[in-house]
Amino acid sequence: MTVDTTLADLSDTLFSVSVGLYSLAVVAFCAQLAFGARPAAQRELVGAGAPVAPAADTAAPAAEPPNVRRYGAAAMVLTVLGALAHAGVLLFRGLAADRLPWGNMYEFATAVVLVAVVSFAVLAVRRPALRHLGIFVLAPVVLSMVAIGLFLYAEAGPLVAALRSSWLAVHVSTAILGFGIFFVSGIASVMYLLRVRHDARVAAGTATAGGLLDRLPSPVAIDRVAHRTAVFGFPIWTFAVIAGAIWAESAWGRFWGWDPKETWAFIAWVVYAAYLHARTTAGWRGRAAAWVNVVGLGVMVFNLLYVNMVSTGLHSYAGVE
């Protein structure tokens, strides 16, 4: 099996294209936030009530002048175009090496970021108010992509023998999906915490209303996005861990062995379980629960970077020299 260098080069070019498109999307999202009118005060009053009707979410774009709405639409178009180029990166990688394009850390991380972008795009299309979160999702996306390109890049190549199993499609795909969804969930919780702190400061008179944070959707809406995405991601992550255990049983002779990657997958599972419990428990609801979600994202990122690159374990497929 030889690697088709033309396709591999095309994949690398698309990587740069997608980073460029995402950067433009960040600029457009920025413009939407910066030039957007501050949302009307009654929106927050509605948001303060426990059950928020969907109408409260969609109120913000309607109040925006058309030129600002155009920035938002342009940002979404750029995001979608970026995601298409991003998908092309993986597609042509896969075609070049004639295998699934998640055989090393560069490909895995690229796929995770793609899932995050797609999850955000789906949310933002369904609820236009969430577009105001765009810059806070796309900016980390651009940073992650640049870091991936700089530090994790690995040439397209064949899979090592251990990865040649149909479980690669099941286990790694679901791990990528779960990670990408948790990524969006974690960012939503960060934004929730920022927004709640900002609102408290405005209420206390130590900060003035009218900043960028006031243009975010209401805290309740952001928190709901964080919770919904985590609820969606948790069974996927559970499945990924179980599929990993089944694969480990046929590859390494035991279904669970506390390999560093397994240990951190377990830690992440426990932290997200704690988040879902905290979200429904009095005394933890709100900021404490959001912090748990942020810790969960930290664990996921640590699991990707530290465990692959520093510790030695069976999941040493980083392919980074």
Binding site: W258, P260, T263, W264, F266, I267, V270, V271, A273, A274, H277, A278, T280, T281, G283, W284, V299, V307, S311
Partner: peptide, 20 residues
């Protein structure tokens, strides 16, 4: 429930030295 959440955290924390 809040004890369960604390215990979940302790379990996550307790697993960390096992990987480091």
């Amino acid at each position: 429930m809040r004890t369960a959440i604390i215990l979940l955290f302790l379990l996550a924390l307790a697993a960390i030295p096992g990987s480091l």
